[in-house]
Amino acid sequence: MDDFQQYLEQLLSQTPLQMGNIIETIIIILVLIVIRFVIVRIVYRQAEDTSTRYRWRKNVTYTIVFIGFLLIGRTWIEAIGSLATFLGLLSAGLAIALRDPVTDMAGWAFLMWRKPFNVGDRIQIGENKGDVVDIRFFKFTILEIGNWVHADQSTGRLIHIPNHLVLRDPIANYTSDFEFIWNEIEVIFTFETNWRKAKSIIEKITNDHLKDYVNDAEQQIRRATKSYLIHYRNLTPIVYTDVVDDGIKMTIRHLSNPRSRRGINQMIWEDVLDAVANENDIDFAYKTVRIYQNQIEGKEKLKPAKDDLEHSSEQSISGSAE
């Protein structure tokens, strides 16, 4: 009890200027907290969308903190007596003791100013990729996709990434400005397949599923060209033909929303499987070993003549007799 009384007497014995600054700081903090609370309550009553509430809450918090920093800093700068002295001491202390937090705040400022991504965007930074769910002063958080889960679907893990990495590592944004990515599906048929018929079937299936994407993509391309030099000659699905070791490869190249890529792949594959099952002259190719007999399976003009076959057989028999 005596120690507390001594502390109180010591505190009250401080200069009036210092006590005034302490009281003014407390008042500023309380007033700003009340203002933030009132604004957030108003926003929650007016807006029902979760993302809108989140953005308002974050922006109001940042603004209040910035104003508070200015007001409290001005109060104590006057107490110190010199702006240059204050900034010098502050910068020296931050540079030595708070290097990582300072670079994180610089990264946060870059995120707020340049906006390489926003909350809700799907991004990849370094080896981590996912949907951005939160951005703060020192870190941002993504809901991870990929890893052991295929087709860019969520793993359920939250990854917290320091903000300074946005100044160091490349950032890939799946959904900013242009909310589509190019996707490819490979289908391989045997060499004996009626490949023209197979290609027309695949083109019809692809166009039936993806025709609605083209109009949306054209509108977003026009919007994206205002910020970036993006130009695509053709946005409609295309089926490319190629020959590989296993057979004839058809590659479907099409636009897809990043979050629905797996679903689109499934719908296209199911229709392709159903269509091929009903065709007797179309069959899938797969890894296997086969013996090709040219005299039986080859083209007529390329088959060896009967005389050549008989002569070859006679030579084989005579060679065996010797």
Score class of each variant (00 low, 15 high):
Y44A: 07
V272Y: 15
I181H: 07
F178I: 07
T85F: 14
I125Y: 04
V43S: 03
F138A: 09
E184P: 04
E279W: 06
Q219K: 13
E186R: 08
G126E: 11
T155R: 00
Y228L: 05
K115I: 04
A106C: 06
H254C: 07
D49H: 05
P237I: 04
F178R: 05
Q14N: 14
P304I: 14
L30T: 07
S318V: 10
N163M: 06
N257Y: 09
I238L: 08
Y213R: 03
S316F: 13
G263V: 06
I201W: 09
I221G: 00
S51M: 14
E192K: 08
I26T: 05
F140R: 04
L235D: 04
A151K: 00
D308L: 15
R222L: 13
G68P: 06
D169N: 10
V276P: 11
A47E: 10
Q293G: 02
I268M: 06
F191P: 09
V65C: 04
K306N: 15
L30F: 10
P162F: 11
F284G: 09
I96H: 05
Y54V: 03
N163E: 06
A275I: 11
E78C: 03
E179V: 02
T251C: 05
Y213G: 03
T241D: 03
L8M: 12
G247C: 10
D177W: 14
S176K: 14
R122S: 08
D308W: 14
E218P: 00
L158G: 02
R99F: 15
D274S: 11
D169R: 09
Q295T: 14
P101K: 06
E300T: 14
Q124F: 09
T85V: 11
T288K: 15
H164Q: 05
H150I: 09
E78G: 08
I28L: 11
Y62A: 10
E218Y: 03
N59K: 07
N265V: 05
G130D: 02
W269L: 15
